[in-house]
């Protein structure tokens, strides 16, 4: 996964690409399974982050940092300061990076929201809770990708025998019902982490099935 678009996926999710770049990336996604899969995973991160509430840390770390800076500026006390080296284990670094991902996923989600709440929060920023009707906005690009794959399948399925086409359609319908179930439940409980993940996973299954069948049909051309 080293193509030029890999590092742009988060910007794509956050809606920060201009129209030309967005169109180019979407064209790339149609042909690059790894980027598409990565995008799906990033969206899952966003989905997980949707359930997070902005809870401040138990202690205000910045005050401690500021106090240390002041101490450092005071010559009389400087000799009492013990210089500390930050030494993090690999596990701590990994945990920190994942925490960053989750937080940035939350940022991405916030960026995705068309209307930010004006209610102030304890973090000083705005933390809009998803509202009914906004619940599944994060699925937009996946919906589009599924639509593209279904269009491709409609064109390709003539290469498949009718029994296979019937089975595939039946199973796509089963997945669609599961997606619909999850969406309805999410409308009633937008912040539910399990439901967001369940919807994301179910949509991923649909994408994978569509891709698999399209690949199978293409192999017979």
């Amino acid at each position: 996964m080293n193509d030029q678009w890999t590092t742009r996926l988060s910007e794509y999710i956050d809606g920060e690409l201009d129209r030309t770049e967005q169109a180019a990336l979407e064209a790339h996604l149609a042909t690059c399974g790894q980027c598409y899969a990565t995008l799906g995973e990033l969206r899952q991160v966003v989905a997980r982050a949707k359930s997070l509430s902005d809870t401040p840390p138990a202690t205000d770390l910045w005050m401690e940092i500021a106090r240390e800076i002041r101490r450092e500026k005071a010559p009389a006390r400087r000799d009492r300061l013990v210089r500390r080296r930050f030494s993090l284990t690999v596990g701590q670094l990994l945990a920190a990076s994942i925490a960053l991902v989750l937080l940035s996923g939350g940022g991405a989600w916030l960026a995705l929201q068309p209307l930010a709440s004006s209610e102030p929060t304890r973090f000083g920023g705005s933390t809009p809770r998803p509202r009914v009707g906004q619940v599944v906005t994060w699925t937009g690009h996946t919906d589009a990708a599924i639509a593209d794959l279904q269009t491709a399948l409609t064109q390709n399925e003539k290469r498949l025998d009718t029994a296979t086409v019937r089975i595939v359609r039946e199973n796509l319908a089963i997945i669609d019902r599961a997606i619909a179930d999850a969406r309805v439940a999410l409308q009633k409980d937008p912040g539910n982490a399990y439901l967001n993940l369940h919807l994301a996973n179910t949509m991923r299954r649909k994408v994978e099935l569509l891709r698999r069948v399209n690949d199978m049909a293409a192999a017979r051309s």
Binding site: S51, L52, A99, G106, D189, G191, A193, L195
Partner: peptide
């Protein structure tokens, strides 16, 4: 289909 899940903290 009611849920009342609340994740307590980012950490």
């Amino acid at each position: 289909t009611s849920f009342s899940w609340a994740l307590r903290s980012v950490t």
